[in-house]
């Protein structure tokens, strides 16, 4: 128990460090330890920090936290370490909404807000569809939920495919960039809309941690231990849909964070969800801040989509984890 509190404490300590490193690095270099001074005395670099770097690093931290805690929650609900936030259709739904908006309506309509709202609405809609398909007589089967998620995912994928086919060159470019994910569009207004959703959603999910522990024994065991399994599933699925919808709307589809981070956290400190959920949130924040730092610095002056960076690092890393610890963790 003590051990885990220590790990959480260290992780939380690492977050501001990675935030300030990421805020400092870029075309205009700022040493991390000079940041407080620059902020206090409005020295040179103040504008770069407050208008460009801060919204971007804060947004990437928030999105990372949302994706990772969602992954951890869904892995708990489905009792499957391979579950990922995309599973309940919200990511593909949001992608479909975004591509529909870009191709059929035009990415500029309603200013910067049209696209993310279309993505969010469509992501929620698809998750509600998944839920409705899986529900029968007041109860929802996790297996049907999983299968309905897979079915609607491929359906939304087909929709994205059709839109890609119909798109002209310019639309195709913004579409591809959006689907791969990135924080190029991070501004304070985006942060201020995303942050409250993140806080509410994560608060909801953190409260489910103890019930998720009971759930890892099996759904009927959880019931026998006094968990209201139906309400647990409902809160978990809609909590996840809410924050993943917000994350995808703000930054596009960023893979692997939701899958890999919970595993890492379990590897360091065990499987108790009361530790894994907050640990994943902080770990995901740190990871995505650093991934975005790489994305915008390795091919200067261009910028890689951050989704490519997470997949490029996440893939081999996950493989290494799998090979190294398969006995202890994945079994």
């Amino acid at each position: 128990m003590q051990h885990r509190a220590k790990i959480l404490f260290i992780l939380i300590g690492c977050l501001p460090i990675s935030l300030s490193i990421a805020a400092g690095v870029g075309a205009y270099q700022i040493l991390p330890w000079r940041i407080p001074q620059i902020l206090l005395f409005r020295e040179e670099g103040f504008a770069v920090l407050t208008y460009v770097r801060f919204p971007r690093v804060v947004l990437s931290a928030v999105v990372g936290a949302m994706l990772a805690i969602s992954g951890a929650t869904l892995q708990g609900i489905f009792r499957n370490p391979l579950a990922d936030p995309g599973l309940i259709g919200v990511t593909a739904g949001a992608g479909l909404g975004a591509t529909l908006w870009i191709v059929l309506i035009g990415s500029g309509v309603l200013g910067v807000w049209g696209l993310p709202f279309a993505a969010f609405a469509c992501g929620m809609l698809v998750t509600i569809g998944v839920w409705k398909i899986a529900a029968s007589q007041g109860s929802v089967s996790t297996v049907t939920l999983l299968l309905a998620g897979i079915a609607l995912n491929s359906f939304a994928g087909a929709g994205i495919g059709i839109m890609t086919f119909l798109a002209d060159d310019e639309q195709l470019r913004s579409l591809t960039f959006w689907l791969l994910g990135g924080f190029g569009g991070a501004t304070w207004p985006v942060v201020f809309i995303t942050l409250p959703i993140a806080v509410i959603g994560m608060f909801v999910l953190l409260r489910l941690a103890a019930a998720l522990n009971a759930m890892s024994l099996g759904e009927s065991e959880a019931y026998h231990l006094g968990v209201s399994t139906e309400s647990l599933k409902r809160w978990a699925i809609f909590g996840v849909a809410l924050i993943v919808g917000a994350a995808v709307s703000a930054a596009g589809g960023i893979g692997f964070v939701g899958l890999v981070v919970p595993h890492l956290i379990r590897l360091i400190g065990g499987a108790d969800h009361r530790y894994v959920l907050p640990g994943s949130a902080v770990g995901g924040a740190i990871l995505l801040v650093l991934a975005d730092l790489l994305a915008r610095t390795v091919v200067v002056p261009a910028e890689l989509p951050v989704g490519i960076v997470t997949a490029l690092i996440g893939g081999p890393f996950f493989l290494w984890l799998l090979l190294r610890f398969k006995r202890e963790v994945f079994l």
């Binding site: 892995q75 009792r79 499957n80 370490p81 890892s216 024994l217 099996g218 009927s220 065991e221 026998h224 379990r266 065990g270 499987a271 108790d272 202890e328 963790v329 079994l331």
Partner: peptide
Amino acid sequence: AYLQQKRDVNFPF
């Protein structure tokens, strides 16, 4: 309390 026949726990508890 209820003791089930089958068990599968996929996490390292």
